[in-house]
């Protein structure tokens, strides 16, 4: 069965980055996106706007800093919901703050990835987000198989 990924991310560029990376890796995963925690919950539970995801995603890639409902709030909601609490969640954030990491770890996560912001001083080219995403997606999806 075709596996699905739910990407909860408010940054358009990061979404594109993940989409392109999936294409480059050449795996056939279905990518569902949500721009914030509320939309993601709607998609997981089904609402007037969105039909419920069928089946539930194999993995959720979750940003932390988002409008309306942030990653941390979303995570605590699904961990309270018996139907959703088993879902695998990997945090992908630019936040290196220790309290974000420890708070999400307490709620149960499968990984915590800090998106690169620094540029490699020795090359002209900024570190590519895409390379980062590819590397980790390959790893994550490999573990799913």
């Amino acid at each position: 069965m075709k596996k699905t990924i739910l990407l909860v991310e408010d940054d358009e560029l990061d979404i594109i980055s993940v989409e392109r990376s999936l294409k480059k890796i050449g795996v056939d995963y279905e990518l569902i996106t949500a721009y914030n925690g509320i939309e993601a919950l709607d998609k997981l539970r089904g609402s007037q706007k969105h039909a419920q995801m069928q089946p539930l995603p194999d993995i959720i890639l979750l940003d932390i800093n988002m409008p309306k409902m942030n990653g941390l709030q979303f995570l605590s909601v699904i961990r309270e919901d018996p139907a959703l609490k088993h879902l695998k969640v990997i945090i992908m954030t630019t936040s290196g703050e220790e309290h974000d990491r420890s708070a999400t770890e307490r709620l149960g996560i499968s990984g915590y990835l800090i998106k690169p912001l620094n540029f490699n001083n020795n090359s002209r080219k900024p570190d590519s987000m895409e390379g980062f995403v590819q590397f980790h997606l390959r790893h994550i999806l490999g573990n799913l198989d």
């Binding site: 560029l13 980055s17 620094n118 987000m129 895409e130």
Partner: peptide, 13 residues
């Protein structure tokens, strides 16, 4: 830094 990274990514794409 975030927008710079964004622009850089888009140019790359």
């Amino acid at each position: 830094k975030a927008p710079i990274r964004g622009i850089s990514n888009v140019v790359q794409w």
